[in-house]
Deep mutational scan, measured.
Amino acid sequence: GTVHVGDKTYHFPTPDAAKKFAQEIAKKLNLQVTVKNGTWQVH
């Protein structure tokens, strides 16, 4: 899975790992999470 946070991109071996990371970052930074075609965006 891929997660975009601002101008950074993180790659994870599984979709679940990407989802978990995106949700944790969003919670920590009080941001929104959207997913499109398996790519997570934190914004």
Rank of each mutant, 00 (worst) to 15 (best):
A22N: 00
K28A: 12
A22Q: 00
K19S: 12
Y10T: 01
N37E: 12
T14N: 10
Q23F: 15
H4N: 11
E24D: 13
H4S: 09
D16H: 10
A26N: 02
Q32R: 11
K28T: 08
W40N: 03
P15C: 07
A22M: 02
T9R: 07
E24A: 14
A26H: 02
V33L: 11
V5P: 00
K20T: 11
G6S: 05
T2N: 05
G1R: 10
K19W: 11
T39F: 10
A22R: 00
W40S: 03
Q32I: 14
D16E: 14
V33I: 12
T9S: 08
A18W: 02
K27D: 12
A17D: 11
Q32G: 07
K8E: 08
A26T: 03
Q32A: 12
Q32V: 14
V3S: 01
K36S: 14
A18Y: 01
K27A: 14
K20L: 12
L29I: 03
G1Q: 10
Q32L: 11
D7R: 13
V35F: 15
Q41R: 10
A26K: 02
P13E: 13
D16F: 07
Q32M: 12
T9Q: 08
V33F: 09
D7M: 11
A18T: 02
T2L: 09
K19D: 09
H4V: 15
T34R: 05
A18V: 01
T9L: 10
V33R: 00
W40T: 03
V33G: 02
T2P: 02
E24P: 00
F21T: 01
D7T: 13
N37L: 05
K27P: 01
F12W: 03
W40C: 04
K27N: 12
L29P: 02
Q41F: 15
I25K: 03
K36V: 15
H4D: 05
N37Y: 04
D16I: 09
Y10G: 00
E24M: 13
G6D: 06
A22D: 00
A22T: 02
T2D: 06
F21W: 10
H11S: 08
K36Y: 13
H4M: 15
G6H: 10
H11D: 06
V5N: 03
K20V: 10
L29Q: 05
Q32P: 10
Q32K: 12
K28F: 08
Q23K: 08
V5R: 01
T9C: 05
Y10N: 01
T14E: 06
L29K: 04
V3W: 00
K20E: 14
H43Q: 12
Q41S: 11
V35D: 09
V33A: 10
P15Q: 15
L31I: 05
T39R: 09
K28L: 12
W40Q: 02
N30I: 03
K20C: 04
T2F: 08
A17C: 04
K20Y: 10
Q32N: 10
A26G: 09
N37R: 04
D16N: 09
P13L: 07
D16Q: 13
E24R: 11
P13G: 09
K36R: 09
N30W: 04
Q23Y: 15
N30Q: 08
Y10M: 04
V33N: 01
K27C: 06
Y10H: 04
T14I: 03
Q41A: 08
G6T: 04
F21Q: 01
G1C: 06
V42Y: 02
T34E: 07
A22I: 03
D7P: 09
G6I: 09
K27E: 13
H4E: 11
T39A: 15
G38D: 13
T34M: 06
T39K: 09
Q41V: 15
T2V: 12
T39G: 08
W40Y: 14
N37S: 05
L31E: 03
K36C: 06
H11A: 06
P15H: 13
V35L: 15
P15Y: 14
K36W: 12
E24G: 08
K27Y: 09
K28V: 10
K19Y: 12
V33Q: 02
H43G: 15
N37W: 04
A17Y: 05
H4W: 09
V42I: 09
K27G: 09
P15S: 12
E24Q: 11
Q23H: 15
E24W: 15
L29R: 04
P15M: 13
N30Y: 04
V33E: 02
P13A: 13
H4C: 08
K36T: 14
D16S: 11
G1V: 08
H11R: 09
F21H: 02
K20H: 13
H4L: 15
T14L: 04
Y10F: 11
D7H: 12
F12V: 01
H11Q: 08
K28Q: 11
D16K: 08
F12A: 01
K28G: 05
G1A: 12
V5E: 01
G1S: 12
K8G: 04
V42D: 02
A17M: 12
A18I: 02
P15V: 11
E24T: 11
A22Y: 01
Y10I: 05
H4A: 08
T2Q: 08
L29F: 14
A17Q: 12
G38C: 05
K8T: 09
P15E: 13
V35K: 07
T9Y: 10
N30R: 03
E24V: 08
A22K: 00
A18K: 00
F21S: 01
V33S: 04
T34I: 08
V42M: 04
L29D: 05
K8L: 11
A26Q: 03
G1P: 09
T2G: 03
A18D: 00
G6F: 15
H4Q: 14
T34D: 05
V3N: 00
A22G: 02
T2Y: 09
W40K: 01
L29C: 03
P13V: 08
H43E: 11
K27R: 12
D7Y: 11
P13W: 06
T9I: 14
T14S: 10
Y10E: 00
V33K: 01
G1T: 13
K19H: 10
L31V: 14
W40R: 00
H11K: 09
G38A: 06
V3I: 02
V5L: 10
